[in-house]
Design a binder for these strands. Structure first.
Length: 155
DNA sequence: GCCAACGTTGGC
DNA sequence: GCCAACGTTGGC
């Protein structure tokens, strides 16, 4: 199975790439995905070794900030079972979990963050779902070329 | 803080 | 099954 490439959004106020860098083994579980399309990517397509662009949304400026890698494939997002969690979803049952998560490990933090503005200026990235109008998906596939281009700019 | 775009909910 | 109302996302 060929390596796939992904882009995943996180609000840095909630969980930033620096938080990932400080995590044990620089690894974390990616909780809180509550969208079916994103869930399907996580559940059905993400494999160990896949590469991920870590993207800061709702930040100034929004930007691609680093690379991580899938180190554990889909398993139930336990935060959905916890009434105390902001991601609690009573519809997700332990015997039939609605939401899934993967574990990701930091590969590198970019020396230069690649802002959404810079990405928009790059013709090779024009087709990325991230840059399309009205895009709200928090987990999305990208091509190897797009991945490589962002890494090239991010250093 | 605003608001357009989108996904979800629920009445019918 | 339609669709209006609502809540959320996320760039600006």
């Amino acid at each position: 199975m060929a390596t796939k490439y992904w882009l995943m959004k996180s609000e840095p106020d909630v969980f930033s790439i620096d938080d990932l860098a400080k995590s044990k083994n620089q690894t974390t579980y990616w909780d809180g995905v509550r969208n079916y399309q994103a869930r399907n990517f996580i559940r059905d397509e993400m494999k160990i070794g896949d590469k991920v662009i870590f993207y800061h949304s709702n930040s100034k400026p929004p930007a691609a900030v680093g690379i991580c890698e899938i180190v554990k494939e889909a398993y139930p997002d336990f935060t959905a079972f916890d009434p105390e969690s902001p991601h609690y979803d009573p519809k997700s049952k332990k015997d039939n979990p609605a939401w899934m998560m993967v574990d990701v490990k930091l590969v590198m933090k970019f020396k230069n963050f690649v802002s959404i503005d810079i990405m928009r200026q790059n013709k090779k990235l024009k087709k990325m779902q991230l840059l399309q109008r009205g895009n709200r998906l928090s987990v999305m596939p990208i091509t190897k070329d797009e991945f490589d281009e962002i890494v090239k700019m991010g250093g």
